[in-house]
C-alpha cells in the first residue's frame, strides 16, 4: 500500500464513526500527513547536498598518516613475526649471533672477558636525506622524517686486546623542527 494513500483522510470510513469524532480524526490525520510530507521534503532537501570534499593538504596529510601507520606495523612484524616458523628461524639466528659474539670476546689467555661491560659504542653519520615532507598536527611542532645511514662501532676492550666491530645501520628518524 502506498504510504501517502494510507494517511489520506478519505480512506476513513465516514459511517463507522460519529461525525464529530470522524472530523477530528480526519483533521489529526491531515496534520500528520502534512508533517510527514514536510519531513520528507526536509530529507529531500538535505540529500541535495553532499559532504564537502577534503582539501588537498588534508588529503595528503591523511595519506601520509596512513602510510606511516602501515610502515610502523611492518616494523613491528619484523621483530614479532606472527608466523611461528619465521619466529623460530629468527630466534635461531639470534642464538647463533649471540654465540658468535661471545666467542669473539674470548681472548688469548683463554678467559672469557666481561667484554660487554667495558664496551663502548661510537656512531658516525655516513649519510642523511629527508624521506618525507613535513608532518604536523595543530599545536605541535612539525616533524620531518630522515633516512640516516649510521656506522656503529662497538669497541670491546681488554687489558691486552681491543676488538672493534663496525656495523652499518640504516635507520629512519623523525625530527621535530621548530618554525620561526
Amino acid at each position: 500500500m502506498d504510504p501517502e494513500e494510507a494517511i489520506t483522510p478519505s480512506n476513513i470510513s465516514a459511517t463507522a464513526l460519529p461525525a464529530e469524532l470522524n472530523s477530528r480524526l480526519a483533521a489529526a490525520m491531515t496534520a500528520a500527513s502534512n508533517e510527514v510530507r514536510s519531513t520528507i521534503q526536509i530529507e529531500q532537501l538535505l540529500k541535495r547536498f553532499s559532504p564537502a570534499t577534503m582539501s588537498l593538504s588534508t588529503q595528503i596529510r591523511n595519506q601520509q598518516a596512513i602510510k606511516q601507520a602501515r610502515s610502523k606495523k611492518a616494523s613491528r612484524h619484523a621483530f614479532f613475526p606472527r608466523n611461528w616458523t619465521t619466529g623460530l628461524a629468527a630466534l635461531l639466528c639470534v642464538s647463533i649471533l649471540s654465540t658468535a659474539i661471545i666467542s669473539m670476546s674470548q681472548f688469548k689467555d683463554g678467559t672469557t672477558s666481561a667484554a660487554f661491560e667495558n664496551s663502548l659504542v661510537s656512531r658516525n653519520v655516513i649519510e642523511s636525506k629527508p624521506v618525507q615532507d613535513l608532518q604536523w598536527k595543530h599545536g605541535e611542532s612539525p616533524q620531518r622524517s630522515y633516512e640516516v645511514l649510521y656506522e656503529d662501532s662497538f669497541v670491546i676492550k681488554n687489558d691486552n686486546t681491543t676488538i672493534i666491530i663496525t656495523v652499518p645501520n640504516k635507520t629512519r628518524v623523525s625530527i621535530e623542527e621548530s618554525v620561526l
Partner: peptide
C-alpha cells in the same frame, strides 16, 4: 629543542598477511 624517535626502516607490505 630537538627530539628523535628511532625506528627501523621497513617498506609497507603490498598485501595483507592472509
Amino acid at each position: 629543542m630537538k627530539s628523535m624517535n628511532h625506528h627501523h626502516q621497513q617498506s609497507p607490505p603490498d598485501h595483507d598477511d592472509l
